[in-house]
């Protein structure tokens, strides 16, 4: 297996600016240094709750945001400049809101042609041919090409978004909550389409979502983020059944499931830590039933725990 994407110590700190009469603020660490790699043809799921840094990570991966530190390697080559045109041919992005990711004043044809023209410099005939190919793969009719985005339903618009990403012929596609704006019956259509495309074009996916069941259904491996850090990485079929990190367990137990009685897995005041004033030690310690003094002072590192599973916890769940 070759490594499609490798990130090393990637981190992003948003500076808050310097107040006029006080020393500069430390800044918000949206993504703390994290490293992982994705193999070619693999789907890596990334889950976490709002504010955990999923979207910041995704925007760094596609070059829309410059990392504060760390490096991104695609197929062994480091990408150090945040130039989307360089990233564009390697890695593409599918947005959460399908309608607002399409310019309301352009026809679908104009939207589809842009990457072909700008990234590949194709002439008109070549573009037409390529668009036909892609539209056939995503089950869209070519008559849609001369319409405007507002004429489409969410599911169709998301397919157009996927088609646009495919037009750049990338190796990797970052899917940022691609189905969370869609109805369940349409959601399944889009997820299945994504799975088919992956085999057809030998793509590598980074699938970002807050929906554990969806992530589990489409991913090979899953990364769980909490407060900007990776807390657990593991195989999709094991990570929610046998979580090592208490946060992963909490997530898995919170998802409402038919046939499980209603219990709140945690009753006490549980909120994400304040990003302006991050706690020392493990960020989850304040909500964790297993936390000890050690957790409140020492930040745990990501350690191997069992086969193919890594977790950042001082007191992992056994078994």
């Amino acid at each position: 297996m070759t490594v499609a994407l490798k990130i090393t110590d990637l981190a992003k700190t948003f500076s808050l600016g310097k107040p006029l009469f006080r020393p500069a603020l430390p800044g918000v660490r949206a993504v703390r240094p994290m490293s992982f790699q994705v193999e070619e043809g693999e789907t890596l799921g990334i889950v976490g709750e709002s504010g955990c840094g999923k979207s910041t990570l995704a925007r760094m991966l596609v070059g829309l945001l410059e990392p504060s530190v760390g490096s991104i390697e695609i197929a062994g080559k480091a990408l150090d400049n945040a130039d989307p045109a360089v990233f564009g041919k390697q890695i593409q992005y599918v947005f959460q809101d399908p309608i607002s990711s399409l310019n309301p004043r352009k026809t679908i044809r104009q939207i589809m042609e842009t990457p072909l023209k700008r990234l590949y410099g194709m002439d008109k005939a070549q573009r037409q041919e390529r668009i036909s190919e892609i539209f056939a793969s995503v089950n869209l009719r070519e008559e849609f090409l001369d319409r405007y985005p507002h004429e489409f339903s969410g599911g169709q618009a998301q397919r157009i978004g996927i088609a646009r990403a495919l037009a750049a012929a990338p190796r990797i596609i970052v899917l940022d909550e691609p189905v969370s704006a869609l109805d369940v019956s349409v959601q399944a259509q889009v997820l299945n389409l994504l799975a088919d495309l992956r085999t057809e074009f030998n793509l590598t996916y980074l699938f970002i979502s807050h929906d554990l069941a969806v992530v589990e259904a489409v991913s090979d491996r899953v990364v769980v983020l909490y407060f900007g850090s990776v807390v657990e990485i593991g195989q999709a079929e094991h990570i929610f059944n046998a979580p090592k990190h208490p946060y992963t367990k909490l997530l898995a137990e919170s998802a409402p499931v038919v046939g499980r009685p209603l219990t709140a897995p945690e009753q006490k005041d549980s909120e994400l830590p304040d990003p302006l004033n991050p706690p020392p030690g493990c960020a989850f310690a304040g909500r964790c039933p297993r936390a000890t003094e050690l957790c409140r002072t020492d930040t745990p590192a990501l350690r191997q725990m069992g086969e193919d599973q890594l977790a950042a916890c001082h007191h992992p769940i056994e078994g």
Partner: peptide, 22 residues
């Protein structure tokens, strides 16, 4: 519709979909 909703614990799989739109 129930079949469309993935449930946690099912592992990686093809999801059932309803073709067409409402």
């Amino acid at each position: 519709l129930i079949a469309c909703v993935p449930e946690l614990g099912g592992g990686r799989r093809e999801l059932a979909a309803i073709p067409g739109l409402p």
